[in-house]
């Protein structure tokens, strides 16, 4: 608004990685593993499939900001019953 934002990064990009929990069956990963093996890909042990969600936003990476990203990851972007998440932040438009 009227006040200048004091920002460490300015506009940032957050990449959220959502993956099936270790002990959760991943039928898609299993199917991809099967296809890879049948194509002759060697030494494959396991394939797990998840999602990558990219967010562009305006913010300061302080504690409150981090907490708000964690909250939306838990509430909406992942289902804690079956998925883990982690996220990485980088500046954009530099």
């Amino acid at each position: 608004m009227g006040t200048a934002r004091v920002s460490f990064f300015g506009d940032v990009k957050i990449t959220v990685f959502v993956t099936p929990k270790k002990n959760v069956l991943d039928p898609q990963g299993a199917a991809v593993a099967h296809a890879m093996t049948s194509l002759g890909f060697q030494n494959l042990k396991n394939v797990r499939m998840g999602k990558v969600i990219e967010l562009e936003l305006d913010g300061e990476p302080d504690e409150a900001f981090n907490a708000s990203v964690d909250k939306i990851c838990r509430d909406l972007l992942s289902n804690p019953v079956i998925e883990d998440y982690r996220w990485a932040i980088e500046p954009t438009g530099a």
């Binding site: 959760v24 039928p27 898609q28 199917a31 289902n79 019953v81 079956i82």
Partner: peptide, 17 residues
């Protein structure tokens, strides 16, 4: 209902895909 936490657990992709 599972997503809303009104019932426990989750429903994932059919094993057969």
């Amino acid at each position: 209902l599972c997503e809303a936490g009104l019932l426990p657990g989750a429903l994932i992709r059919n094993e057969c895909l």
